[in-house]
């Protein structure tokens, strides 16, 4: 099976280049994921660099651009991919080496939305009550694994990574606004005012298209906009 992989080692290379690599068909099982193939390629050439950890799509380490589409290598079946399989780092982010990008711009936007529960009531001795219906409001929001597939697929984020918060951070913001225990919706909404932070979302919906967890940041952003309208009336 043929692969074309983005290589860049700043200590040696003046510019990134694409490396053609072949994995012997005898080593490929039909149920393999792309990560399995990358690990075999790394065993042949240990300089090939990428992040990976859980191998089952829950840690969010191995987001990359696979045949033009962002996804997690560990849950992308090899059999679903046309050859040569072209693998590049997540787009729009500074590349540190090979498939490894600098996530700091992404994490900075995550931290910018105060991604934690805010509740200023005295802490009760037991749990705060939340009905199953209230809890259901969090489904589709809390499962984010911060893989950055969505934000790095978003043209608005590419243009304004410092000003537009991006789908992942906004999904987090929506997650806390939707939590019946959180008391900071007003402050959260106020923080999102202005032309960039929230409103650079032009509902292109690449985020929905690529999310490996099947989440829908565009819908979450829509909910935030509704709350904003309500707040302004």
């Amino acid at each position: 099976m043929k692969f074309s992989i983005y290589r860049y080692n700043p200590e040696q290379d003046t510019a990134p280049w694409m490396q053609d690599l072949v994995l012997d068909d005898s080593r490929i099982r039909p149920d393999m994921m792309l990560l399995d193939a990358l690990l075999l390629l790394k065993a042949q050439d240990e300089t090939l660099s990428f992040r990976r950890s859980c191998g089952e799509g829950v840690c969010g380490s191995d987001g990359m651009n696979i045949n033009g589409r962002n996804g997690l290598a560990c849950i992308t079946p090899l059999a679903s991919l046309g050859t040569p399989v072209t693998v590049r780092p997540l787009p729009g982010m500074p590349v540190i080496r090979d498939l490894i990008v600098d996530f700091e711009p992404f994490y900075r936007q995550y931290r910018a939305v105060s991604p934690y529960l805010i509740n200023n009531d005295p802490v009760p001795e037991v749990e705060r009550r939340q009905s199953p219906q209230q809890r259901e409001q969090l489904d589709g929001l809390y499962e984010c694994i911060l893989c950055a597939c969505c934000s790095t697929a978003c043209p608005s984020f590419w243009w304004n990574p410092d000003k537009f918060l991006g789908p992942a951070a906004l999904l987090q913001s929506a997650r806390f606004m939707a939590d019946s225990r959180d008391q900071a919706t007003d402050e959260r909404l106020a923080e999102l005012e202005g032309p960039f932070r929230l409103f650079r979302c032009h509902t292109i919906m690449n985020c929905v298209e690529v999310c490996p967890k099947g989440l829908n940041p565009t819908r979450a952003i829509g909910r935030i906009k509704e709350l904003m309208v309500k707040r302004s009336i």
């Binding site: 749990e127 009550r129 009905s131 199953p132 809390y142 959180d182």
Partner: peptide, 19 residues
């Protein structure tokens, strides 16, 4: 566990709102 709930962990809930 109660501390976790206060930290924001989205526990599944029973009909009466408890964990």
């Amino acid at each position: 566990v109660y501390e976790l709930e206060h930290f924001g962990v989205p526990f599944s809930r029973l009909d009466d709102g408890r964990i």
